[in-house]
Design a protein around this nucleic acid. Structure first.
Length: 244
DNA sequence: AATCGTATCAACCGCCGAAAT
DNA sequence: CATTTCGGCGGTTGATACGAT
């Protein structure tokens, strides 16, 4: 991958001659009372090494949060949202980069079957992975993988063995358009735990193998009905405490 | 070597709900 | 109570890498 520029890039929009700018971009460059991201002196596009350093240094000394005021305080010409995204997805410590393992694939598929496109919730169960990363991975790899296996990746519970009659509560995680934040996540997790009681085999279903069999599970799951929740009987599995 | 099509993924956009005013 | 601001989310875009021809 190419190295980012060492100094602050001008940003994509600013590199274009004005005659080529879309109207919205021209208006934004005039700073006509637009939200932070569209203001005149705000960089867009890839982050430079210097910007990364400024962001990291600021968060190390002041902690996370207060994103809207962070850019000014850190000397960054970015909007708060952009800073937050950069930190969450790429700069914060303990991020696991690199290829997804077969076990992670399996877990994502199972969680997606249960939760749908709720990437932040799914990411919450994959340490070191971000919602953006999982979302990208799903769209570029796992969707195709499921299609190839004859499973409809869009249908909720597609990878579950039997139709789930999910028990719902008013603040439940499984309410389709309920947005999750970190606090709600705990509530949702407890709701899911309730669901696990309704569905006693739920924890059995959501296993991740730490001693992955060579060449993985995928080849063993050529048919939709094989996209099952039980682990390979021969493998050593450890149940992830998913909803606790 | 050049061109084209496809895949990947970092970053942006727009929306929503909660908190603040 | 109404409005504004902020943080967080999922969807989408577009630059780049990569492979096939």
């Amino acid at each position: 991958t190419p190295q980012p520029p060492q100094d602050l890039p001008l940003g994509r929009l600013q590199l274009l001659p004005h005659s080529q700018l879309p109207l919205s971009a021209l208006l934004s460059q005039l700073d006509m009372g637009k939200p932070c991201c569209e203001k005149q002196d705000t960089n867009k596009g890839a982050w430079s090494k210097l910007e990364d350093e400024k962001l990291i240094n600021h968060i190390h000394s002041h902690g996370e949060g207060r994103w809207s005021s962070l850019p000014k305080a850190a000397g960054l010409l970015r909007c708060g949202k952009s800073c937050r995204l950069r930190w969450i997805n790429y700069l914060r410590p303990n991020l696991k980069r690199g290829k997804f393992t077969e076990d992670e694939d399996d877990l994502i598929i199972k969680l997606h079957a249960l939760l749908g496109n709720r990437w932040s919730l799914i990411a919450g169960r994959l340490p070191g992975r971000t919602d953006n990363e999982i979302k990208n991975y799903w769209n570029s790899h796992l969707r195709k993988k499921l299609i190839h296996m004859g499973v409809n990746p869009n249908s909720r519970n597609a990878a579950l063995p039997t139709p789930l009659s999910i028990h719902r509560c008013s603040s439940c995680a499984l309410r389709p358009y309920h947005r999750a934040n970190s606090i709600k996540f705990e509530d949702e997790a407890s709701c899911l735990e309730d669901n696990a009681r309704v569905l006693p085999d739920l924890n059995i279903d959501l296993n991740i193998s730490f001693a992955s069999p060579p060449h993985g599970l995928v080849d063993q799951k050529q048919h939709p009905e094989d996209v099952e929740m039980k682990g390979d009987p021969g493998a050593i599995y450890r149940t992830l405490v998913l909803f606790r």
